[in-house]
Design a protein around this nucleic acid. Structure first.
Lengths: 197, 197
DNA sequence: TCGAATAGAACACGATCGTACGCTATTCTT
DNA sequence: AAGAATAGCGTACGATCGTGTTCTATTCGA
């Protein structure tokens, strides 16, 4: 017995995108069918595709929902720390924690989506690439701040620091999702510690 | 005008698996349909699935074909070098070259397959995980040899060296396939140089 | 040289896909 | 209080999926 059809619509949109992100992290964004989402949240296929105009729009909304979840889980916990090395360490800790806690049931959505769509031209691929560039830019800016404060060695460029940290997170994600190692972030934490001094 | 039906069968098997690996590197192993492979090499769907018993068998054969291509492109060029640091550097150079030359049209097949199947239980996923473990073991053994010869620092374990190098290769693959950067291996080469001294 | 075996084509099948259309029930506007 | 707008359901559509069966042409062993 809904109180407002408009609020319901927004709720449905969010539920569909969030559910799609969960499914996609495990099975791939392109493999998530409307019927599966419908079954997952208990509405009809029409109810799934209705709030979006096409499946591509739904995929873009799914990506936005996943990126927001990533931001809330990885950036938000460290946002209040002092910019520079301290916040960079906080982000990495939140990032590893995010991977360990399986915020997405099938591992990092953005990593999976990047590898899935890197060979498929289109708006979804472009949006994924933009999201990654954005995140690398955040890491790079933080590293630069740390270097300017003298808290981080300049033997690597800020960009290089961002790319190395990103590589380590992807490696930890793989260690957990593919290999199922008991302490999947151990090696990445060790290496990140070396990068960040 | 074939000379032997048996030889033809083997040729068809190899052509199907190789073509499937190419397609899969760009679009994903699960997304490659029998019809697409058939169209690609100009035979019927029956001719595609015939040499294998099911699509899962075809996927396993595709993985084996891709792993062999990886071995030929990355291990083989360095195999004759002296075991230890020299061969490890040779492997990394061949690995980066393999990524730069787009040996698979959609980027490293094994990386894409790992991320695609890490959330799907089954024989294909297990085979992918085994292939990666095998490769990590190769890198680790080489690193250990290098350490025992005193040519590689012991501040990282051999396993840690293998995992860090692997993370860098995955990062370079992403830089090329998703971001399309002009020199996608630059940062990974820099970091690998630091790891290997 | 002739029957057995096999590679591959042709076709049919049930299932599932994304999308479109019509309908019902509820809410919002006036 | 009544008409407009909309959320979501039910259904149907054409396309494509993996698989199974049947059949033909070719090559094999004896």
């Amino acid at each position: 017995m809904p109180r407002s059809s408009r609020e319901d619509a927004a709720r449905t949109r969010a539920a569909v995108a969030s559910s799609a992100a969960d499914l996609a992290s495990a099975e791939g964004l392109a493999s998530v069918s409307l019927g599966r989402i419908a079954e997952q949240i208990g509405i009809s296929k029409s109810g799934v595709i209705g709030p979006f105009r096409s499946k591509e729009e739904l995929q873009l909304a799914t990506l936005r929902a996943a990126a927001e979840r990533f931001r809330a889980e990885v950036w938000e916990p460290a946002a209040d720390l002092e910019p520079g090395i301290e916040r960079l360490r906080g982000v990495m800790e939140a990032w590893f924690s995010y991977l360990e806690r399986d915020v997405f049931p099938g591992g990092c959505f953005l990593t999976a989506a990047a590898h899935e769509f890197d060979g498929r031209p289109g708006r979804v691929r472009d949006a994924i690439a933009r999201t990654w560039e954005l995140w690398l830019g955040v890491l790079e800016a933080e590293a630069r701040t740390a270097q300017e404060a003298g808290a981080l060695s300049r033997d690597r460029s800020a960009r290089q620091v961002a790319l190395e940290l990103n590589a380590l997170a992807m490696s930890a994600n793989m260690a957990k999702q593919l290999h199922g190692w008991p302490d999947p972030t151990a090696h990445a934490r060790e290496a990140a510690g070396r990068v960040l001094g």
